[in-house]
C-alpha cells in the first residue's frame, strides 16, 4: 500500500492561526480536500514537514451574494455543482466543476484546491521509484526538463478545470496572511512556469473567490480528456460572453486550459469577437485564433499535435453553445455526461 511520509499535523482554530503556522514553520503547506496533495505526498513529489488543515474551517465554506458572488475557497466541488445559483448564473464554472475528476473526488476536493492544483507532467506525476529511474526532473529532485531537454523552465501543465472558467468570468481571488490580505485578478495568480506556477507566497492562504455579477454574461466550459471521468483535461476551452442589445458581442473572454503551465487568455480571439455577431464564419475565425494561442507540449495524454488540432474544434463548440445552438448531442459524445 502506498503510504504517506511522516509530517506534523496542525488543526488551526481559524484562518489567522493557520496563517501564523504557515509563516512560522519551515516547509509547511495547507491541506483542504487533500485530493491533490496527498497523492503527491505518497509519491514523494511534495514532502511538507507540516500540514495545516483547513477542512474544518466553516469560514471558508460560505457562498455569499453581493454585487456578484463570493465563494469560500473551502467549498467542495460537489457543493458548487449543487448550487442552483451558480448553475444558472455561472454556467461555465458549473460545467467545469462538474467535470473535475470523479464524484468522490468532487465530494472531497475544494474550489481553492482546484485553483491551486499542482501542475502536472507525465515525467513528474510518478512514484519516487519511477522518477529515480529517469534520474528525476527539474520540478522535483532533478536538474533537467525531460519534456524539452533544452528548456530552462519546467513545462508541467496547468490542469485545473475551474481556473480557466473562473478567469473567463473575470474572477478575483483573495489571499490572506497573518498580517493582512490582498485581492488580485485570478489570472494574476498564475505564471507560465511549471514549478513556480502560482504568484501566491508560501505564507498566503487562498480564502475567497470573487465573481462579478453574472447577469447578462453567458459562459461555457468544454473539456477534452480520454475518458468520461477521472482524467485531467488534455485541453479545455472556457468562454464567457456578454452580448449587446443587437445580439452582437459586447465583451468576450476565451481561456484555454491544459496547454501551458497556466491558463492561457486568448486575447486576440476575444478582441476579434467584440462587436461581431456569432456567425459561423466569425466563430471559425475566432476558433482559429484560439488555436494559434495554444502551445501544448508532450507531457499529457494524447499527442501535442492532436491537442493543438482539437483547439479550434473545441473553441468552435464553445462559441456555438454560447450562440444558443443545441450542443447536447455533441456534449454527450465528448463529455460523456449531460452538462
Amino acid at each position: 500500500m502506498m503510504r504517506l511520509p511522516r509530517f506534523h499535523y496542525y488543526r488551526p482554530r481559524d484562518i489567522r492561526e493557520a496563517a501564523l503556522v504557515l509563516a512560522g514553520e519551515e516547509n509547511a503547506m495547507v491541506i483542504a480536500g487533500g485530493t491533490d496533495l496527498l497523492p503527491n505526498m505518497k509519491r514523494r513529489q511534495q514532502t511538507p514537514r507540516t500540514l495545516v488543515a483547513l477542512r474544518h474551517l466553516d469560514e471558508l465554506k460560505r457562498v455569499t451574494n453581493g454585487s456578484g458572488l463570493v465563494i469560500g475557497a473551502g467549498v467542495t466541488l460537489t457543493d458548487l455543482v449543487q448550487d442552483r445559483g451558480i448553475k444558472s448564473a455561472y454556467r461555465g464554472l458549473w460545467q467545469a466543476a462538474a467535470q473535475v475528476a470523479t464524484p468522490h473526488l468532487r465530494n472531497m476536493g475544494t474550489l481553492g484546491g482546484n485553483i491551486c492544483l499542482d501542475t502536472r507532467c507525465n515525467y513528474y506525476d510518478q512514484n519516487h521509484e519511477w522518477r529515480k529511474a529517469i534520474d528525476f526532473c527539474m520540478k522535483k529532485d532533478g536538474a533537467i526538463c525531460w519534456v524539452s531537454t533544452g528548456s530552462k523552465t519546467c513545462l508541467a501543465t496547468s490542469s485545473t478545470d475551474t481556473a480557466p472558467a473562473l478567469v473567463s468570468l473575470g474572477a478575483e481571488v483573495e489571499l490572506e496572511t497573518a498580517h493582512g490580505q490582498r485581492t488580485i485578478p485570478l489570472h494574476e495568480l498564475y505564471r507560465d512556469d511549471g514549478i513556480h506556477y502560482l504568484t501566491r507566497s508560501n505564507e498566503e492562504i487562498l480564502t475567497r473567490i470573487i465573481l462579478p455579477d453574472g447577469a447578462g454574461t453567458r459562459s461555457v466550459y468544454w473539456k477534452l480528456r480520454r475518458r468520461g471521468s477521472f482524467d485531467f483535461p488534455v485541453l479545455s476551452v472556457a468562454a464567457a460572453i456578454r452580448f449587446g442589445a443587437g445580439g452582437a458581442v459586447d465583451e468576450a473572454r476565451i481561456v484555454l486550459g491544459a496547454v501551458a503551465s497556466q491558463p492561457v487568455l486568448c486575447d486576440s480571439a476575444s478582441e476579434f469577437l467584440n462587436d461581431r455577431s456569432l456567425t459561423d464564419e466569425v466563430i471559425e475565425e475566432a476558433a482559429a485564433l484560439c488555436a494559434r494561442a495554444a502551445k501544448p507540449v508532450k507531457n499529457t495524454d494524447f499527442s501535442p499535435h492532436w491537442r493543438k488540432r482539437a483547439v479550434a474544434r473545441l473553441a468552435a463548440y464553445a462559441l456555438q453553445e454560447l450562440r444558443g445552438d443545441d450542443m447536447r448531442a455533441t456534449r454527450e459524445k465528448i463529455a460523456r455526461q449531460a452538462l
Binding site: 502506498m2 491541506i31 487533500g34 496527498l38 497523492p39 509519491r43 468522490h104
Partner: peptide
C-alpha cells in the same frame, strides 16, 4: 491504487461517498 485513481476504497463519511485513501 491508494492515489484516488480507482475508487475501490470509497466509504461514506457523514453520508457522502469519499475515497478513504485520500482522507486523513
Amino acid at each position: 491504487c491508494e492515489l484516488g485513481e480507482c475508487g475501490a476504497c470509497a466509504v461514506l463519511v457523514d453520508g457522502e461517498p469519499i475515497l478513504s485513501c485520500l482522507y486523513l
